[in-house]
């Protein structure tokens, strides 16, 4: 089985979809010759040419909006928004247009648009290139939201996003691009709305996304040595949420820690916490613990950045708290 990095896995999903289907094309800033700011689309210009690996001006409103228009005409565009911070520039088009055309038309239109973006702390890019805004989009009916944490997941979920008839916003975490995993040559689609148990355990469920999945897996070993059996569950899709998968895990472990890199307040973990108390309150033996960034913009100085965002030790601390 070939070993693909998270970056190569994204590229593989895009390339396979483009080989199979003329309606799939990619638009974004610096994605052609340069291969994108993170190198995800490197080499694709040679295979698919400039019409389908389409460099754009710095115009997030227009490129997302052009994706909407092409999608409404039956194509399956993939728009790369260079940093998820820049989604804010295209927010109107995503929230008022992409998410609502189907609804406002009473079901006449479909918008099969995929928006790929990336972000995350760890490289000290500062307050406008490192935040995690996935929760903002979960609040918008009409959108689907994907946040994959492994190479195989990102490949299979991006494929499903491209072939979904709705607008899907796919978040990638910058520090994961180099992560490698063996996977079959043949791409396996992963259904949107299906979580994944990364590690089975019986005492506490850590519900984690993105980078925090890996932090949770790391501390699970440590917790094990302390006699605490940790289950790590990754929703992978934030909207729709795999409520059944979440509840099944909670009913087994009776304790929950939610962990994401985004700011804790109003973060996706708050929604997970609410769902758990609505659906599995009687099974809980301890309050749900939340792990996320402190309520601050992402600072520049590495020492401050490191302080603001959560790490493995924060997850371990939260695990210990739920079992204490």
């Amino acid at each position: 089985m070939p070993e693909l990095s998270y970056r190569e896995a994204v590229r593989d999903a895009l390339s396979q979809a483009m080989r199979q289907d003329d309606g799939v094309f990619v638009m974004g800033e610096d994605i052609a010759e340069m291969g994108g700011s993170m190198g995800v689309t490197a080499g694709m210009l040679d295979e698919f040419g400039p019409e389908r690996i389409r460099n754009t001006p710095i115009s997030e409103m227009a490129i997302v909006g052009a994706g909407i228009g092409a999608a409404m005409q039956g194509m399956r565009p993939v728009v790369e928004v260079m940093y998820e911070d820049f989604l804010t520039v295209s927010m109107e088009q995503i929230v008022n247009q992409a998410a609502k055309h189907r609804y406002m038309s009473g079901g006449q239109l479909k918008v099969p648009l995929t928006i790929r973006t990336q972000g995350g702390a760890g490289w000290s890019p500062g307050a406008q290139h490192a935040q995690q805004v996935e929760a903002w989009f979960v609040h918008v009916p009409g959108l689907k939201v994907v946040f994959a944490s492994t190479p195989a997941d990102v490949r299979g979920l991006l494929w499903s996003a491209i072939y979904d008839d709705n607008p899907v916003v796919c978040f990638e975490h910058r520090t994961l691009y180099g992560l490698k995993e063996e996977m079959p040559e043949q791409l396996e689609a992963i259904p949107i709305g299906q979580g994944r148990v990364h590690r089975e355990g019986s005492d506490v469920t850590v519900v984690a996304t993105g980078r925090l999945v890996h932090e949770a897996l790391q501390v699970a070993e440590q917790a094990d040595s302390e006699g605490v059996s940790v289950e790590v569950w990754d929703p992978r899709t934030l909207q729709p949420l795999d409520v059944d998968g979440l509840v099944a895990s909670v009913k087994k472990t009776n304790r929950v820690v939610v962990a994401h890199e985004a700011v804790t307040r109003g973060g996706f973990g708050a929604e997970i916490t609410a769902v758990v108390q609505e659906e599995a309150f009687d099974w809980l033996d301890a309050p749900v613990e939340r792990v996320g960034a402190r309520f601050a913009p992402i600072p520049f100085a590495p020492v401050m950045e490191n302080y603001v965002v959560p790490h493995a030790d924060n997850v371990l601390e939260a695990i210990r708290k739920t079992v204490s």
């Binding site: 909407i68 092409a70 409404m72």
Partner: peptide, 11 residues
């Protein structure tokens, strides 16, 4: 609506 019209025309 202007961006989507540009995109429809692109299609």
């Amino acid at each position: 609506g202007l961006p989507a019209i540009t995109g429809a025309a692109l299609a």
